[in-house]
Simulated assay, not measured.
Amino acid sequence: MTGIVTQFENTKLSHMELSDQVVVDSDTTAYDTVLAMAEADTSCAFVMSGAEIVGIFTEHDVTHRVVRSPDVWEQPVENFMTSNPKVVTGAASALDGLRLMTEGRFRNLPVILEDGNANLTHYDLIHLASDYLKSDHEETHEFNAEYALKYVDFYGMPSRVPLEVEADESLFNTIELMIKADRGLISVVDLRGILIGEFTQHDVFRKVACRVDDLNDVPVGDYMTTSNMATALPTWSIADGLHEMSKKRHRYLIVVNETGRTVGVVTFRDIADYFQAAFVTD
């Protein structure tokens, strides 16, 4: 078993610094829930019935079910949440969490702790992987997941074809593209195809949802993120990419060439899938 997999297996969720979430009752409106998430800058809300987590409401739900329909903003969040989510206790390991999230294709996993609830996210797993790879530990020269993370570059792993729009494209068309492709990130480029910004599901719930009534009326350039983007050259190692994602707190990495044009997009899920044999079944 490789070192990084052992690290994931030996790290209990109760010992990790997990992500925050907001907590709302099931009859809280979608509008109030989105604003609470934006104020707390967290991409997930736990929906409660008493002390029980009956659902989670995430930036994915906001993008796919709420942002385009102002007429539903005052409806209860339970109408749009993901019901009966998987839940684990703090005794579960990071590897257990990664397995569940990889197999279920979700990015938020509620964790029941002795002193309350917390949320395991891809951000937390990125931090764990990045911190381990930066630490002083004995290395092996066998070709395994850890070796590949450090020495395989982004030419050597599959990446997603980037979805691109120009800054004057409408929010409506940009979000429609995001939904139809089931992507969480759209690259915003200039007339020469050079990356000038990004528009993500995080931007949707923080800046747009329950604020902008007519998505056709405003360009995406007014709401895109232009600073603190996580980017990498194709020659970077996957470990370098994980460090960049950890530093910028992104689960997406935009791979750009020397001219600043986007050549691919990599997510933490892509990296986990690439090393599935080591991370999940080793």
Rank of each mutant, 00 (worst) to 15 (best):
T6F: 03
Q7N: 14
E9H: 14
T11S: 14
L13Q: 06
S19F: 04
S19D: 09
V24D: 01
D25C: 06
T28Y: 02
T29E: 01
D32M: 00
V34I: 10
L35F: 06
L35D: 08
L35R: 15
M37F: 09
A38R: 10
A40M: 01
A40G: 08
A45D: 05
V47E: 02
I56Q: 10
F57C: 04
V66S: 03
R68W: 06
R68M: 13
S69N: 15
D71V: 11
W73A: 01
W73Q: 04
Q75W: 08
Q75I: 08
V77M: 00
E78M: 13
E78V: 02
N79H: 10
T82N: 08
P85A: 09
P85R: 08
K86T: 07
T89L: 04
G90L: 04
A91L: 15
L95E: 12
D96L: 13
G97L: 02
L98R: 13
R99P: 10
R99Y: 12
L100F: 11
M101C: 07
R107Q: 08
L109P: 07
V111H: 01
I112L: 12
L113Y: 05
D115C: 03
N119Y: 00
L120A: 00
H122G: 08
Y123T: 11
D124T: 02
D124H: 08
L125N: 07
L128Y: 01
L128C: 02
L128G: 01
L128P: 05
S130K: 04
K134H: 07
E139L: 10
L149D: 03
K150H: 10
Y151L: 11
Y151G: 01
D153W: 00
Y155M: 03
Y155W: 07
L163R: 02
L163C: 04
L163P: 05
V165T: 01
D168C: 03
D168V: 12
D168I: 11
S170L: 00
I175K: 10
E176V: 15
L177A: 11
L177M: 14
L177F: 07
M178Y: 04
I179H: 09
A181L: 06
I186N: 00
V188F: 07
D190V: 03
L191Q: 15
I194M: 14
E198M: 06
T200R: 11
Q201R: 14
H202E: 14
R206Q: 15
R206D: 14
R206I: 02
K207F: 05
C210K: 02
C210Y: 06
C210I: 04
L215A: 06
L215S: 05
D217A: 15
D217G: 15
V218T: 12
P219D: 11
V220G: 01
T225P: 07
T225W: 01
T225A: 10
T226V: 10
A230T: 06
A232N: 03
L233F: 13
P234T: 04
T235Q: 12
S237L: 12
A239W: 05
D240G: 15
D240R: 15
H243T: 15
E244H: 10
M245R: 04
M245P: 13
K247W: 11
Y252A: 06
V255Q: 04
V255C: 13
V255W: 05
V256A: 05
E258W: 12
R261F: 02
T262P: 09
V263T: 13
V266D: 06
T267Y: 08
F268D: 09
R269C: 08
R269W: 08
F275V: 03
F275T: 05
A278E: 14
D282Y: 08
